[in-house]
Computed example of a mutant assay.
Amino acid sequence: MTFTVRSLRPDDPWDAESCAAVRRAAIPYLVCTAETLAWQLAHGAAGQRLHRFVAERPDGTVAGCIEAGLVAGSTEPGQGFVHTAVAPGATGRGAGSALVAAGEAYLAGLGVRRVLSWVADAECAARFAAHRGYARSRQARFLGLELRRAAFPALPDPLPAGVTLHRVAEFTHDLRPLYEADTECSADEPGAVPVGRTRFPEWLRHNWQRPDWNAELSSVVLVDGQVAAYSVAQTDGVDRYWSGMTGTRRAFRGRGLARLAKLAALRRARAAGYAHAYTGNDADNAPMLAVNRRLGYTEVATEWRCVKRL
Protein backbone atom coordinates (compact mmCIF):
# COMPACT_ATOMS: atom_id res chain seq x y z
CA MET A 1 0.00 0.00 0.00
CA THR A 2 1.18 3.52 -0.75
CA PHE A 3 1.14 5.94 2.18
CA THR A 4 1.44 9.69 2.15
CA VAL A 5 3.59 11.01 4.98
CA ARG A 6 2.73 14.55 6.04
CA SER A 7 2.91 16.77 9.10
CA LEU A 8 0.13 16.44 11.64
CA ARG A 9 -2.23 19.41 11.56
CA PRO A 10 -2.45 20.45 15.24
CA ASP A 11 -5.40 22.77 14.64
CA ASP A 12 -7.43 19.98 13.07
CA PRO A 13 -9.29 18.08 15.84
CA TRP A 14 -9.89 15.09 13.57
CA ASP A 15 -6.18 14.86 12.73
CA ALA A 16 -5.12 14.98 16.39
CA GLU A 17 -7.77 12.44 17.41
CA SER A 18 -6.73 10.08 14.58
CA CYS A 19 -3.12 10.23 15.76
CA ALA A 20 -4.15 9.68 19.40
CA ALA A 21 -6.34 6.72 18.39
CA VAL A 22 -3.40 5.07 16.61
CA ARG A 23 -1.18 5.52 19.66
CA ARG A 24 -3.84 4.15 22.02
CA ALA A 25 -4.32 1.07 19.80
CA ALA A 26 -0.61 0.44 19.31
CA ILE A 27 0.55 1.29 22.85
CA PRO A 28 -2.51 0.70 25.07
CA TYR A 29 -0.60 1.07 28.35
CA LEU A 30 0.16 4.76 27.74
CA VAL A 31 -2.22 7.67 28.34
CA CYS A 32 -2.74 9.65 25.15
CA THR A 33 -5.37 12.24 24.24
CA ALA A 34 -5.88 14.40 21.17
CA GLU A 35 -5.97 17.49 23.39
CA THR A 36 -2.54 16.73 24.82
CA LEU A 37 -1.00 15.99 21.41
CA ALA A 38 -2.16 19.37 20.12
CA TRP A 39 -1.06 21.13 23.32
CA GLN A 40 2.45 19.66 23.12
CA LEU A 41 2.96 21.00 19.61
CA ALA A 42 1.68 24.44 20.54
CA HIS A 43 3.07 24.87 24.06
CA GLY A 44 5.72 22.20 24.73
CA ALA A 45 9.36 22.95 25.51
CA ALA A 46 10.72 25.18 22.75
CA GLY A 47 14.11 23.49 22.94
CA GLN A 48 12.53 20.15 22.08
CA ARG A 49 11.55 21.26 18.55
CA LEU A 50 8.83 18.63 18.58
CA HIS A 51 7.28 17.65 15.25
CA ARG A 52 4.73 14.97 14.37
CA PHE A 53 4.16 13.20 11.08
CA VAL A 54 1.31 10.89 10.09
CA ALA A 55 1.13 8.15 7.45
CA GLU A 56 -2.10 8.62 5.53
CA ARG A 57 -3.88 5.92 3.50
CA PRO A 58 -5.32 6.75 0.05
CA ASP A 59 -8.76 7.08 1.65
CA GLY A 60 -7.48 9.81 4.01
CA THR A 61 -7.43 7.73 7.21
CA VAL A 62 -4.34 7.66 9.41
CA ALA A 63 -2.40 4.37 9.62
CA GLY A 64 0.50 5.51 11.78
CA CYS A 65 2.29 8.45 13.35
CA ILE A 66 5.71 9.46 14.60
CA GLU A 67 6.98 12.20 16.88
CA ALA A 68 10.52 13.52 16.54
CA GLY A 69 12.49 16.13 18.41
CA LEU A 70 15.50 17.02 20.51
CA VAL A 71 16.05 15.56 23.97
CA ALA A 72 15.16 18.62 26.04
CA GLY A 73 17.69 19.43 28.76
CA SER A 74 20.34 17.01 27.53
CA THR A 75 23.86 17.92 28.63
CA GLU A 76 25.18 16.29 25.45
CA PRO A 77 24.42 18.17 22.20
CA GLY A 78 23.01 16.39 19.17
CA GLN A 79 20.62 14.05 21.02
CA GLY A 80 17.23 13.40 19.41
CA PHE A 81 14.35 10.94 19.54
CA VAL A 82 11.72 9.30 17.35
CA HIS A 83 8.67 7.47 18.71
CA THR A 84 6.67 5.52 16.15
CA ALA A 85 3.19 3.98 16.35
CA VAL A 86 1.40 2.04 13.61
CA ALA A 87 -2.18 0.82 13.91
CA PRO A 88 -2.23 -2.95 14.57
CA GLY A 89 -4.01 -3.72 11.28
CA ALA A 90 -1.56 -1.65 9.23
CA THR A 91 1.78 -3.12 10.27
CA GLY A 92 4.12 -4.68 7.71
CA ARG A 93 2.90 -2.51 4.82
CA GLY A 94 5.52 0.23 4.77
CA ALA A 95 3.92 2.88 6.99
CA GLY A 96 6.52 2.47 9.75
CA SER A 97 9.45 2.65 7.32
CA ALA A 98 8.10 5.81 5.70
CA LEU A 99 7.51 7.45 9.08
CA VAL A 100 10.97 6.61 10.45
CA ALA A 101 12.59 7.99 7.28
CA ALA A 102 10.64 11.24 7.68
CA GLY A 103 11.48 11.51 11.38
CA GLU A 104 15.19 10.88 10.84
CA ALA A 105 15.33 13.40 7.99
CA TYR A 106 13.75 16.00 10.26
CA LEU A 107 16.28 15.28 13.03
CA ALA A 108 19.21 15.38 10.61
CA GLY A 109 18.09 18.88 9.66
CA LEU A 110 18.35 19.84 13.34
CA GLY A 111 21.92 18.55 13.55
CA VAL A 112 21.07 15.42 15.55
CA ARG A 113 23.84 12.84 15.66
CA ARG A 114 22.32 10.26 18.01
CA VAL A 115 18.70 9.11 17.86
CA LEU A 116 16.87 7.30 20.64
CA SER A 117 13.65 5.35 20.25
CA TRP A 118 11.48 3.03 22.32
CA VAL A 119 10.93 -0.35 20.64
CA ALA A 120 8.59 -3.10 21.81
CA ASP A 121 10.20 -6.31 23.05
CA ALA A 122 8.78 -8.37 20.20
CA GLU A 123 10.57 -10.21 17.42
CA CYS A 124 8.99 -8.24 14.59
CA ALA A 125 9.73 -4.90 16.28
CA ALA A 126 13.32 -5.95 17.02
CA ARG A 127 13.87 -6.90 13.37
CA PHE A 128 12.36 -3.63 12.18
CA ALA A 129 14.64 -1.58 14.46
CA ALA A 130 17.81 -3.58 13.74
CA HIS A 131 17.23 -3.37 9.98
CA ARG A 132 17.23 0.43 10.29
CA GLY A 133 20.40 0.57 12.37
CA TYR A 134 18.99 0.78 15.90
CA ALA A 135 20.83 -1.12 18.64
CA ARG A 136 19.34 -2.06 22.00
CA SER A 137 20.49 -0.07 25.01
CA ARG A 138 18.27 -0.04 28.12
CA GLN A 139 15.14 -1.99 28.98
CA ALA A 140 11.94 -0.60 30.50
CA ARG A 141 9.08 -2.49 32.11
CA PHE A 142 5.47 -1.38 31.94
CA LEU A 143 3.09 -2.50 34.64
CA GLY A 144 -0.68 -2.42 34.90
CA LEU A 145 -3.29 -2.59 37.63
CA GLU A 146 -7.07 -2.99 37.42
CA LEU A 147 -8.19 -0.38 39.91
CA ARG A 148 -11.70 -1.73 40.48
CA ARG A 149 -10.37 -5.12 41.56
CA ALA A 150 -7.24 -3.94 43.38
CA ALA A 151 -6.99 -4.95 47.05
CA PHE A 152 -5.41 -1.77 48.36
CA PRO A 153 -4.51 -1.57 52.05
CA ALA A 154 -6.00 1.25 54.08
CA LEU A 155 -3.93 4.39 54.49
CA PRO A 156 -2.08 4.46 57.84
CA ASP A 157 -4.17 6.02 60.57
CA PRO A 158 -2.61 7.79 62.25
CA LEU A 159 0.27 8.68 59.96
CA PRO A 160 3.79 8.51 61.44
CA ALA A 161 4.82 11.45 63.59
CA GLY A 162 5.54 14.54 61.51
CA VAL A 163 4.10 13.03 58.30
CA THR A 164 1.17 14.65 56.48
CA LEU A 165 -0.47 13.64 53.20
CA HIS A 166 -1.79 16.14 50.65
CA ARG A 167 -3.03 16.61 47.09
CA VAL A 168 -0.80 18.60 44.72
CA ALA A 169 -3.86 20.81 44.12
CA GLU A 170 -3.29 22.23 47.60
CA PHE A 171 0.10 23.60 46.49
CA THR A 172 -0.70 25.11 43.11
CA HIS A 173 -0.09 28.60 44.53
CA ASP A 174 3.57 27.64 44.97
CA LEU A 175 4.89 24.51 43.27
CA ARG A 176 8.56 25.39 43.71
CA PRO A 177 9.07 22.97 46.66
CA LEU A 178 7.71 20.17 44.48
CA TYR A 179 9.98 21.34 41.66
CA GLU A 180 13.03 21.03 43.92
CA ALA A 181 11.98 17.53 44.97
CA ASP A 182 11.30 16.43 41.40
CA THR A 183 14.64 17.82 40.21
CA GLU A 184 16.50 15.86 42.88
CA CYS A 185 14.61 12.61 42.29
CA SER A 186 14.82 12.82 38.49
CA ALA A 187 18.59 13.21 38.70
CA ASP A 188 18.79 9.79 40.37
CA GLU A 189 16.67 7.97 37.78
CA PRO A 190 18.58 5.54 35.52
CA GLY A 191 18.50 6.56 31.87
CA ALA A 192 20.28 6.60 28.53
CA VAL A 193 20.89 10.37 28.28
CA PRO A 194 22.34 12.68 30.95
CA VAL A 195 19.91 15.54 31.53
CA GLY A 196 20.69 18.79 33.29
CA ARG A 197 18.53 20.83 35.64
CA THR A 198 15.35 22.17 34.03
CA ARG A 199 14.52 25.79 34.80
CA PHE A 200 11.42 26.28 36.95
CA PRO A 201 9.22 28.00 34.29
CA GLU A 202 9.93 25.20 31.81
CA TRP A 203 9.26 22.53 34.44
CA LEU A 204 6.01 24.23 35.40
CA ARG A 205 4.79 24.39 31.81
CA HIS A 206 5.81 20.83 30.96
CA ASN A 207 4.39 19.28 34.13
CA TRP A 208 1.38 21.29 35.26
CA GLN A 209 0.05 23.24 32.32
CA ARG A 210 -0.46 20.30 29.97
CA PRO A 211 -4.05 19.07 29.97
CA ASP A 212 -3.57 15.46 31.03
CA TRP A 213 -1.73 16.07 34.34
CA ASN A 214 -4.10 15.88 37.29
CA ALA A 215 -3.30 17.94 40.40
CA GLU A 216 -6.37 16.63 42.26
CA LEU A 217 -5.19 13.02 42.10
CA SER A 218 -1.45 13.68 42.49
CA SER A 219 -0.04 13.22 46.01
CA VAL A 220 2.55 14.97 48.14
CA VAL A 221 3.96 13.67 51.44
CA LEU A 222 5.38 16.24 53.83
CA VAL A 223 7.69 15.43 56.75
CA ASP A 224 7.86 18.21 59.30
CA GLY A 225 6.53 20.59 56.64
CA GLN A 226 9.07 19.65 53.94
CA VAL A 227 8.24 17.89 50.66
CA ALA A 228 9.59 14.37 51.16
CA ALA A 229 7.81 12.27 48.50
CA TYR A 230 5.26 12.66 45.73
CA SER A 231 3.35 10.77 43.04
CA VAL A 232 2.14 12.53 39.91
CA ALA A 233 -1.09 11.48 38.16
CA GLN A 234 -1.75 11.71 34.44
CA THR A 235 -5.23 10.84 33.16
CA ASP A 236 -7.20 10.62 29.92
CA GLY A 237 -10.44 11.92 31.45
CA VAL A 238 -12.18 8.62 30.69
CA ASP A 239 -10.86 5.49 32.38
CA ARG A 240 -7.06 5.44 32.20
CA TYR A 241 -4.53 6.62 34.81
CA TRP A 242 -0.75 6.87 34.45
CA SER A 243 1.81 7.47 37.18
CA GLY A 244 3.91 10.20 35.59
CA MET A 245 6.60 10.18 38.28
CA THR A 246 6.92 8.95 41.86
CA GLY A 247 9.91 9.85 43.97
CA THR A 248 11.35 10.40 47.44
CA ARG A 249 14.03 12.94 48.30
CA ARG A 250 17.32 11.37 49.33
CA ALA A 251 17.10 12.41 52.98
CA PHE A 252 13.76 10.61 53.42
CA ARG A 253 14.29 7.34 51.57
CA GLY A 254 13.77 3.94 53.12
CA ARG A 255 10.68 4.97 55.11
CA GLY A 256 7.93 3.83 52.71
CA LEU A 257 6.95 7.37 51.75
CA ALA A 258 6.91 6.78 47.96
CA ARG A 259 4.53 3.89 48.50
CA LEU A 260 2.35 6.06 50.74
CA ALA A 261 2.19 8.82 48.10
CA LYS A 262 1.38 6.39 45.31
CA LEU A 263 -1.17 4.46 47.34
CA ALA A 264 -3.05 7.69 48.14
CA ALA A 265 -3.04 8.72 44.47
CA LEU A 266 -4.28 5.31 43.32
CA ARG A 267 -7.09 5.27 45.86
CA ARG A 268 -8.21 8.74 44.73
CA ALA A 269 -8.03 7.64 41.08
CA ARG A 270 -10.29 4.69 41.80
CA ALA A 271 -12.74 6.88 43.72
CA ALA A 272 -12.81 9.24 40.73
CA GLY A 273 -13.91 6.38 38.46
CA TYR A 274 -10.68 5.43 36.70
CA ALA A 275 -10.48 1.73 35.89
CA HIS A 276 -6.99 1.07 34.53
CA ALA A 277 -3.70 2.21 36.09
CA TYR A 278 -0.34 1.96 34.34
CA THR A 279 3.22 2.90 35.13
CA GLY A 280 6.68 2.33 33.71
CA ASN A 281 10.17 1.90 35.15
CA ASP A 282 13.67 1.38 33.89
CA ALA A 283 14.50 -2.30 34.36
CA ASP A 284 17.35 -1.31 36.70
CA ASN A 285 15.07 0.74 38.98
CA ALA A 286 14.61 -2.11 41.46
CA PRO A 287 13.27 0.00 44.37
CA MET A 288 10.39 1.47 42.36
CA LEU A 289 9.60 -1.84 40.68
CA ALA A 290 9.33 -3.37 44.16
CA VAL A 291 6.99 -0.58 45.32
CA ASN A 292 4.74 -1.08 42.30
CA ARG A 293 4.56 -4.83 42.69
CA ARG A 294 3.67 -4.50 46.37
CA LEU A 295 0.77 -2.30 45.30
CA GLY A 296 -0.47 -5.05 42.99
CA TYR A 297 0.92 -4.01 39.61
CA THR A 298 1.85 -6.79 37.18
CA GLU A 299 3.97 -6.55 34.04
CA VAL A 300 2.03 -5.84 30.84
CA ALA A 301 4.83 -5.00 28.39
CA THR A 302 8.56 -4.57 27.95
CA GLU A 303 10.30 -2.09 25.69
CA TRP A 304 13.90 -1.40 24.75
CA ARG A 305 15.54 1.97 24.45
CA CYS A 306 17.32 1.68 21.11
CA VAL A 307 20.02 3.98 19.77
CA LYS A 308 21.16 4.89 16.27
CA ARG A 309 23.99 7.11 15.06
CA LEU A 310 22.94 9.34 12.18
Rank of each mutant, 00 (worst) to 15 (best):
residue 113 R to P: 04
residue 120 A to M: 01
residue 153 P to Q: 06
residue 112 V to L: 08
residue 156 P to V: 04
residue 129 A to Y: 02
residue 114 R to M: 06
residue 129 A to C: 06
residue 139 Q to N: 12
residue 156 P to S: 13
residue 166 H to N: 06
residue 182 D to F: 06
residue 174 D to H: 07
residue 115 V to S: 11
residue 184 E to S: 07
residue 125 A to N: 12
residue 126 A to F: 05
residue 131 H to V: 02
residue 165 L to M: 12
residue 128 F to A: 09
residue 157 D to Y: 02
residue 147 L to M: 12
residue 153 P to H: 12
residue 176 R to H: 07
residue 169 A to P: 00
residue 153 P to T: 11
residue 120 A to S: 07
residue 114 R to C: 10
residue 160 P to A: 15
residue 173 H to K: 05
residue 116 L to H: 13
residue 155 L to S: 00
residue 150 A to W: 14
residue 142 F to H: 04
residue 123 E to K: 09
residue 152 F to R: 04
residue 152 F to Y: 12
residue 184 E to C: 08
residue 160 P to W: 15
residue 167 R to A: 13
residue 143 L to F: 10
residue 169 A to S: 13
residue 176 R to L: 09
residue 164 T to R: 14
residue 154 A to T: 03
residue 119 V to I: 09
residue 113 R to D: 14
residue 182 D to R: 01
residue 134 Y to F: 15
residue 112 V to H: 01
residue 182 D to L: 04
residue 163 V to E: 15
residue 138 R to W: 15
residue 161 A to T: 11
residue 172 T to A: 11
residue 163 V to L: 14
residue 159 L to K: 08
residue 136 R to Y: 05
residue 128 F to V: 01
residue 177 P to T: 07
residue 174 D to F: 04
residue 114 R to Y: 03
residue 132 R to N: 06
residue 179 Y to L: 03
residue 110 L to N: 03
residue 148 R to C: 01
residue 122 A to Y: 06
residue 157 D to Q: 14
residue 176 R to K: 13
residue 148 R to A: 15
residue 163 V to R: 14
residue 155 L to T: 00
residue 162 G to N: 09
residue 113 R to N: 12
residue 126 A to C: 09
residue 172 T to S: 07
residue 118 W to T: 02
residue 145 L to Q: 00
residue 141 R to K: 09
residue 127 R to L: 06
residue 174 D to S: 10
residue 117 S to E: 08
residue 159 L to R: 07
residue 121 D to E: 11
residue 156 P to I: 10
residue 130 A to C: 02
residue 112 V to D: 10
residue 130 A to T: 01
residue 135 A to H: 05
residue 128 F to I: 06
residue 161 A to I: 01
residue 120 A to G: 05
residue 146 E to G: 13
residue 131 H to T: 07
residue 171 F to I: 00
residue 168 V to C: 11
residue 110 L to Y: 05
residue 149 R to C: 03
residue 176 R to D: 05
residue 126 A to R: 08
residue 183 T to E: 08
residue 115 V to L: 15
residue 128 F to Y: 15
residue 123 E to L: 14
residue 163 V to F: 14
residue 120 A to F: 11
residue 155 L to P: 00
residue 153 P to F: 14
residue 161 A to S: 15
residue 157 D to P: 00
residue 183 T to Q: 14
residue 151 A to K: 01
residue 113 R to A: 15
residue 147 L to K: 13
residue 183 T to I: 01
residue 155 L to I: 04
residue 149 R to A: 14
residue 110 L to W: 08
residue 174 D to T: 04
residue 183 T to Y: 03
residue 177 P to L: 13
residue 152 F to D: 02
residue 117 S to D: 02
residue 113 R to S: 13
residue 136 R to V: 02
residue 127 R to W: 07
residue 146 E to V: 00
residue 180 E to G: 02
